[in-house]
Design a protein around this nucleic acid. Sequence first.
DNA 1: CGGCAGCTTGACTACGGTCAATGACCGTGG
DNA 2: CCACGGTCATTGACCGTAGTCAAGCTGCCG
Lengths: 244, 244
Amino acid sequence: MAEATDCLDCPLRCRPLFVPMTESELAFQRRFKAGERVVPAGGDIILQGHQAASLYTVLSGMAVRSMMLETGQRQVISFVFPGDLVGLQSGIMGQARHTVTAVTETVLCTFPRERVWELFRNQPSRAYDLTWIAAVEEHFLGETVATLGQRDATQRIAWALVRIWRRLVALGMEQDGSVPFPFRQHDLSDALGLSVVHTNRVLVALRNAGLVRLAGRRLEMLEHVQLSQIALVDMEKEDVRPIL
Amino acid sequence: MAEATDCLDCPLRCRPLFVPMTESELAFQRRFKAGERVVPAGGDIILQGHQAASLYTVLSGMAVRSMMLETGQRQVISFVFPGDLVGLQSGIMGQARHTVTAVTETVLCTFPRERVWELFRNQPSRAYDLTWIAAVEEHFLGETVATLGQRDATQRIAWALVRIWRRLVALGMEQDGSVPFPFRQHDLSDALGLSVVHTNRVLVALRNAGLVRLAGRRLEMLEHVQLSQIALVDMEKEDVRPIL
DNA sequence: CGGCAGCTTGACTACGGTCAATGACCGTGG
DNA sequence: CCACGGTCATTGACCGTAGTCAAGCTGCCG
């Protein structure tokens, strides 16, 4: 951890997606930060059922948040991107209710759980941001519920691709018209409640229709508008969100 | 509004499901409360797309939180019970992203949105509770996602019935072995991503199997254990939750 | 070169959706 | 008091989307 990033230099803060901080907030943030943690691809960041030790902010890398039914089926709840806060739920509720698994090597900023309370006492505006994040997260989950409940396979996949694409673009991770896409089809199908086989078929169809290109761990959006229509997503812009 | 309930006498507070409050918290709460609002059965408590004016706590009655896709399909995101906080998302994010519709006549405690910030400044422990509520809510939504993604029709319905049953029992609303169930099969199907027809078939099957009785706006749980097994819900107890 | 993980394709099946009709139970008004 | 219309529950017949099983691919790493 010798080369831990100082919050002052945190590359995430300059991203337009995030709300700016005041000097004093930043100062508090630096004291709040306990260190960094690196999780290799495939490793678990948080494990379902364990005591939660920390909150994390993703500095780099991607992950999936998932939970296991007792039948062994896995449901991917959401995809995790740089800047995302991980472990708020477990941090507040004390015990992790879901697993977070790194898909690529992931670097995390760690904040000790005990100091969350301190944050509520001394930094009401940061505490407010924290609740804001939770509310935004809840809103996205609502969208996900609507997707699984109402959209058919093609719409679901289009929806997921559009969401991920927009998010990564907003994070400035687009390069030559494509964004990194480290997730496997298996992750997608577990997220959307489809079988891997059918996920693949639909993906092939979208590709043949010339709407997306998905190869070599990268996603290229060829017909953003058309795909958004299929996905039943309106073109409303991504909201700005606070960062911790 | 002449006969508005004083927080001191709020019947919800005595319910074992909720965490107790200190004197000063209660005092603040009383000042926070702006009044009451009564919404008739079928009326909208919050309307998707509108500016949110208030936060609400449900004093009595039940409702559904739902969102509309542009195809006109409705997804019920969650069921709302007495003691639930409604409008936190809209309150924080400024605009309602979903609709909340009263299923029975519903009495709400209203809190002005502007004073939320005041709460964060002056009542850190209540603010913490607020975030706690958001985290719990998020956790439930995660469960819902897992249900829509992984469970088949029978499991979904069993799951919904068990959840609702347990919740109402925890609220002390059980009488003669049954709890009120004002929701229509249509609400259930919109919540679970099934057609009304199929929802009905499964319901009939569960009834014929002697597991539940569902009639006259009341739900009777005949084989709680067995139904929980079908639903793939473990028998873990309901968590205590803060009330606002 | 072999082995493994992930992707792709085909053939068959079934769960759940759609369409349509009927029934039960209201509240309202003639 | 009963006819009417509305909403909600129920049932049957048929169909289609997506799941399952199974086999070949492809590309990567040791």
